[in-house]
Design a binder for these strands. Structure first.
Length: 560
RNA sequence: GGUCCCGUCGUCUAGUGGUUAGGACUCAAGGUUUUCAUCCUUGCAACAGGAGUUCGAUUCUCCUCGGGACUACCA
């Protein structure tokens, strides 16, 4: 019995291993463990990497107090074809956490080799999203760095050189097949229910034919010649050993006929030259990884460590899409979530610190982050839980840190004028009153409307309960008392109400509820006396008289 | 069709051969509060199925089922 109680701390201790060592997942690999010194994971060599040699090789293990930087270099490599998807953001986040944990380098690289799908707005949104989440990159566009440029369209010559190199060594070949023929072959294979891989038609063109076609300017691509009779395997850091039979791999296109590289070539070349040590990317890349490994082999480069992250699903189990609600980082910003909360929530989607902690500061997450605790399983984004966590952050946030954002929301909602200043002390009071009882800034904005405009209607159910026929008289009596109150702070107001209640021989609630409804139109909200104080005497008295009139005119049961 | 990945409460997860399978969100009930929210207490709720290995499987192996990815001169 005591045995099992003691297991937990022990297990926890055992998890604190240097980053370069991990146990294997329980995949059908027959391998007991994947243990490699960190240094072996770092791609090195290759002429272009020489400029980095001054960095030398330092230990990848970071001591708790150490400030030593490591050889860990990771990158987030989005394609600027659309908004930054929340799943992509999570991938970026894990890269970031890993880099910071190991005091390594977090790189941003833009993969814009598909000219037809390039979208300038998308690129701007990616930067904005990353910055908003606080995922600052050490190298990349807008940040610079020795391995630049970090935009692939600016590196076209480099890819061509490397494609040529492979051509010369016979590891790649020119393919003159027309899209038409490719299509035809594929369809035939589909019909025959055979693998749809490219049939390698151009791999062994009869002598001289390739040269002839080339000389005549026939459009062509460059394909990697996948070797026969091989198995290709790699040890995915979160999935364990994965093995492919090379015969199922097709001769992938390296260089397109427009002279630009495909993802595969650009990715491998850049990861090598940028000395990327660990590649964390979405799991849709798993099937391409063996081809990438073969490409590294063809170049004679050691591959980086791979870890494929699971996807984030919508509550219905499908892909998260705009159609179903929020899918991009900016959607969540527009939804009124705090970046710190989203960061925390996203970190916990697919990763856990191994204990029960949920709300964690960024340094805590960085400290605790480890690949071993990353789950291979796709996860569903539960907005209810996100809202809960956001509420926690809203409570803990200072009014000062919130006021800029919140006041902007109010302006956008039209509840305050565009000329309003965020430093208005009145705004600060409203925020401090409302932030603890709101889950999002959107909700805070909605619930704070009565601070800026008299209620247009009274909550029906509450009106039936609190606006009985004696209400007008009651409200006017209270209004008079408030008019004469020597001071309009919440403590004095409470005294007045308690005294009035005692005088009338009723519970304070009998006065409080009608007052709240009269001044806000709703039956819930902050403590009444703090509320009245912030609203101010004039507003309160006016609204109470107004409510009294409305009750008399029988308009009180207008639904809101 | 082929190849690969994944499978613990509704959801996020802990768990690495022996646990009353733990926590969190949601939901429900109660308590605190002038209301709401917070907070506190309690409750509902899971190892996809089947074989095998083992004294013993949530945990290891295999199969089935279910979900997903890839199978572009897109990433």
């Amino acid at each position: 019995m005591s045995q099992s109680r003691q297991r937990k701390p022990d297990a926890h201790q055992a998890r604190r291993v240097p980053f370069g060592i991990r146990r294997a997942r329980n995949r059908p690999s027959g391998r007991a463990a994947v243990r490699r010194p960190s240094r072996g994971l770092i791609p090195c060599g290759g002429s272009r990497a020489d400029i980095f040699s001054s960095l030398g090789s330092v230990s990848g293990t970071v001591s708790e107090s150490g400030t030593m930087s490591s050889d860990v270099r990771v990158r987030f490599a989005p394609s600027p074809t659309g908004y930054l998807h929340i799943g992509g953001a999570r991938t970026a986040l894990f890269n970031y956490l890993f880099a910071r944990h190991h005091r390594g380098t977090f790189i941003l690289r833009i993969e814009d080799t598909d000219r037809s799908r390039f979208d300038k707005g998308a690129l701007a949104e990616i930067y904005e999203s990353l910055r908003w989440l606080g995922l600052d990159w050490d190298e990349g566009p807008q940040a610079g760095g020795a391995a630049g440029p970090y935009v692939q369209s600016e590196r076209a010559a480099l890819y061509r050189e490397h494609a040529d190199e492979l051509l010369r060594s016979g590891k790649a070949y020119r393919c003159f097949c027309t899209p038409d023929r490719l299509d035809r072959v594929r369809k035939e294979r589909e019909r025959a229910k055979a693998p749809t891989a490219y049939d390698r038609h151009c791999r062994n063109l009869p002598g001289g034919e390739a040269e002839k076609l080339l000389a005549s300017g026939t459009p062509h691509v460059i394909r990697l010649a996948i070797p026969d009779g091989r198995t290709v395997s790699f040890d995915d850091r979160i999935r364990g050993h994965i093995e492919y039979d090379a015969s199922v791999l097709d001769d992938l296109v390296l260089l397109k006929s427009d002279g630009l590289p495909t993802y595969h070539l650009a990715n491998v070349v850049d990861d090598h030259h940028m000395r990327i040590s660990h590649v964390f990317r979405g799991d849709e890349w798993i099937a391409s990884t063996p081809r990438h490994i073969l490409l590294y082999e063809a170049f004679g480069w050691p591959p980086p460590v791979f870890a494929h992250l699971p996807v984030i699903l919508s509550p219905d189990g499908g892909k998260l899409s705009k159609r179903k609600g929020a899918a991009s980082v900016m959607d969540y910003k527009r939804g009124g979530y705090l970046p710190e909360a989203l960061f925390n929530f996203l970190a916990l989607l697919g990763w856990s610190p191994g204990d029960d902690r949920e709300k964690m500061s960024r340094p805590e997450m960085i400290q605790a982050f480890s690949l071993e605790k990353v789950s291979p399983k796709a996860s569903v984004l539960d907005e209810k839980k996100l809202a809960w966590m956001n509420g926690l952050y809203l409570q803990d946030a200072s009014v000062d840190s919130l006021r800029g954002t919140v006041v902007q929301w109010w302006k956008d909602a039209g509840v305050v004028g565009a000329e309003a200043g965020a430093d208005d002390p009145h705004f600060a009071k409203v925020i401090s009153l409302m932030k603890d009882r709101s889950k999002t800034i959107a909700e805070l904005t909605e619930n704070a409307a009565y601070f800026f405009a008299d209620p247009a209607a009274y909550e029906e159910k509450a009106a039936r309960k609190h606006f009985k026929e004696r209400a007008p008289e009651l409200l006017r009596t209270l209004a008079r008392a408030l008019e004469q109150a020597p001071s309009f702070d919440h403590a004095s107001l409470e005294e007045i109400y308690r005294a009035q209640a005692e005088e009338a021989g009723v519970s304070a609630g009998k006065l409080i509820h009608p007052t709240r409804l009269a001044v806000t139109g709703v039956s819930f909200g902050p403590g009444l006396f703090e509320l009245l104080e912030v609203l101010g005497r004039e507003t309160v008295v006016r609204r109470m008289h107004r409510a009294a009139e409305r009750v008399e005119k029988g308009k009180s049961h207008h639904a809101e």
